[in-house]
Computed example of a mutant assay.
Amino acid sequence: MPTLDDLIAEAALRKTELARETGIAPATITRISHGGPTTRVTVNKILKVLERHLGRRIEIEHVDGLNITK
């Protein structure tokens, strides 16, 4: 299973670009990608942008290392 960092790299995005497109702070994206706690809503915002760049659906359950608290 890919990690969030794997998907970001595959989409050829920098975290600052992903942050701009999602409205989520770059530090928050870094924290999430390193296993920090987050919500399902926040992860879904990130995955929607990655899906658009990658041209495919990404299921939250198929991303390794996420620490979803709510």
Results as ranks from 00 to 15, higher is better:
L50V: 03
T28H: 13
L7T: 02
I8Y: 09
T30M: 09
H34I: 00
A27R: 15
V63M: 01
A25G: 10
T42I: 12
E10Y: 05
L47N: 08
T38F: 06
K15E: 05
A27P: 10
A19Q: 03
L18A: 03
D64C: 07
P37A: 13
A12L: 14
V43C: 05
K45H: 13
I58L: 07
T16W: 00
K15M: 01
I24V: 15
V63D: 04
E17V: 08
D64E: 12
V41N: 10
T3D: 04
I58F: 02
D5S: 11
L18F: 04
T3I: 02
A27Q: 15
E10I: 00
G55P: 02
T38D: 03
A12K: 15
R20L: 11
T16M: 00
G36R: 09
H62Y: 02
E10C: 10
N44P: 00
I29N: 06
V43H: 03
S33L: 09
T22L: 05
T38G: 02
L13M: 14
L50R: 05
I29L: 11
T22V: 06
A11K: 06
G35N: 07
L54K: 09
E17M: 01
V63G: 01
I8W: 03
E61A: 12
E61F: 01
A25H: 15
D6C: 08
G36M: 11
A25S: 13
I60R: 11
L7D: 08
T22C: 10
P37F: 03
L50D: 02
T28G: 11
L4E: 06
I46H: 04
D5R: 13
K45R: 14
K48I: 11
S33I: 10
A11Y: 06
T16F: 00
L4M: 12
D6W: 12
H53F: 07
H34G: 14
S33V: 08
L50Q: 04
K45F: 04
D6R: 07
R20Q: 13
T3M: 01
I29C: 10
L4T: 01
T42G: 06
S33T: 09
T39E: 08
K48H: 12
E59T: 03
E21V: 00
R52E: 15
L47Y: 05
D5Q: 13
H34F: 11
P37G: 12
I46K: 01
P37L: 02
L4Q: 04
V41S: 11
E21C: 00
T16K: 12
G36S: 13
A9W: 02
L7K: 02
L18G: 03
R31N: 15
T16I: 06
H34S: 15
P37D: 09
L50A: 03
K15T: 07
E21M: 15
E51F: 03
E59F: 05
D5G: 09
R56Y: 06
T28Q: 14
T28V: 14
A27G: 15
A12D: 15
H34N: 15
L7W: 02
I8E: 06
T39M: 03
T16A: 13
R57K: 13
R20D: 11
G36W: 07
